[in-house]
Computed example of a mutant assay.
Amino acid sequence: MATTTTTTSTTPTKNMAAWLTAPKARPFTVAEAPMPAPGPDEVVVRVHAVALNPVDWFIQAVGIIVPADTGYPAVIGCDLAGEVVAVGANSVSSSSSGPASFAPGDRVCGLAGGREAGDFRTGAFQLYAKADRGLSAKIPDAVSYAQAAVLPLGLSTAATALFQKDALALPLPGSSSPSPSSSSSSFDKDDQKKKVLLVWGGRTSVGSCAIQLAAAAGLDVATTASARNHAYCRGLGATWVFDYHNDAAAVEDEICVGVLDAWSRGSIVQCARVVLKLDESGGGGTRTRKWVQTVLPSPEQVGEEVPEGVEVGYTYGTTLVHNEVGPAIWGKWVPEALASGALQCKPDPEVVAQDLEGIQAACDIGAEGWGTSSSPKLVVEFISE
């Protein structure tokens, strides 16, 4: 069994958190929390900014994910950015093909939580939080904590959907090899037409990351967005941007290597129709399966009658830490792309509060505005604690 060696740059003595004390409890209770200690593959971060995701206000409002009988009181929250204060034994070294190494004082962004199953007190909504080193990256000084905090969950979900072998299995950024063999994404590799990824919902958090990841992998990107967001999507690297009523006519004469529904709320059927249309027109290449990859974690959440003959893929955004996708994206591409400016922290953060007490207000704002792909990425900074 691996032992834990902890190195710290400071000696923090007190942690505070926004606690969810019971299912559907409101508001969050700000109170003292245990000081986290890193496991071998974890780092402890002094959190300076957190970004909110729909899952956060759904956990509070509906009582999902956290077990009612064993999970409370809980500290939730996914996206964080801050300064490393402690590292586990395995986190001080790295290899060219593995997760990155970290040291106290590093500025980082990452997904909150450790590797222990069933611990629901490790979320981002606290002053000191754990993050898996395989889902974390150093950030340059030119990138603020608020900017970096918008990336982790959206980027991890996009990378999982695009590159894992059980999803679209597209070539990784920087890879010179063809796409891995996959029944869901195979296409005619001898065809000289451009290879295009269709991202439905390019203005969403996942869509914004997916456009950039696919462009970095050498693909052309077609995406949907409202007219006011067309320039935004092109600025991220999309070649074509069209209204979702258009049915993706722009890619009919190209080879579509995959369809990612980054919205996945009432849009899966639309994406399925695009897949069928591309297949009829030859724009789907040589496929053995007709496939729409969604950002939903399970079929229970689909709620749509998908046309016969089209299969739906599901995405759980942290599974990339267990395969080659995690090190390739978080260990290599993210820090390099942030340093070079190739990766933009999008959507832009909207800072709505500056302390733990502001978590509830941020959740309320997010829940009220949920339902539009142009919703801002809400961020809470911790600067007064």
Rank of each mutant, 00 (worst) to 15 (best):
I211D: 14
A167Y: 07
P152A: 03
K193T: 06
C256A: 02
D243W: 08
G207S: 09
L153C: 11
A215P: 13
W240D: 07
L153R: 06
P152T: 02
E252P: 07
S175N: 05
K189P: 14
R265T: 14
C256W: 10
T204M: 03
A217P: 07
A222T: 12
V241Q: 13
W200E: 12
L168V: 02
A167D: 08
S176D: 03
G154W: 03
L155I: 00
L219I: 09
S182K: 13
D253Y: 04
G201S: 02
Q164N: 10
W263T: 12
K189F: 01
G207K: 06
I255G: 11
T223M: 09
S176E: 11
A225E: 08
T239R: 09
L170A: 01
S186I: 00
D188F: 01
T224F: 05
D220H: 08
A238V: 05
D247I: 02
S208R: 09
E254S: 09
T223E: 11
K195Q: 03
L162W: 11
S226R: 10
T239S: 11
L219N: 05
W263I: 08
V241P: 12
N246C: 06
K195F: 01
D188T: 01
V196K: 11
G235H: 03
I211M: 12
A238H: 04
F187R: 12
A248S: 14
G154S: 04
S264P: 00
S177D: 14
S179C: 05
S205Q: 07
V259E: 02
S185L: 01
S185H: 03
F163D: 03
L168Y: 00
K195A: 04
D220M: 06
P180H: 09
V206F: 01
Q192K: 15
S181Q: 13
G202Y: 04
S205I: 05
G154V: 03
P180K: 11
S181C: 00
T224D: 03
D243G: 12
S182P: 10
T157P: 08
S182Y: 11
A215W: 03
C233W: 00
P180E: 07
P171I: 01
T157I: 05
F187V: 03
E254R: 14
A210S: 00
A249W: 15
V241R: 12
S226I: 05
A158P: 04
C233V: 10
R234N: 09
K195M: 01
I211V: 15
L197V: 06
R234H: 03
C209G: 07
L153G: 10
I255C: 14
W240H: 02
G258Q: 15
T160K: 11
P171C: 02
S175D: 08
D253A: 15
H230Q: 14
D243C: 14
E254V: 13
G235N: 15
Q164V: 01
L153T: 09
C233E: 02
S182C: 08
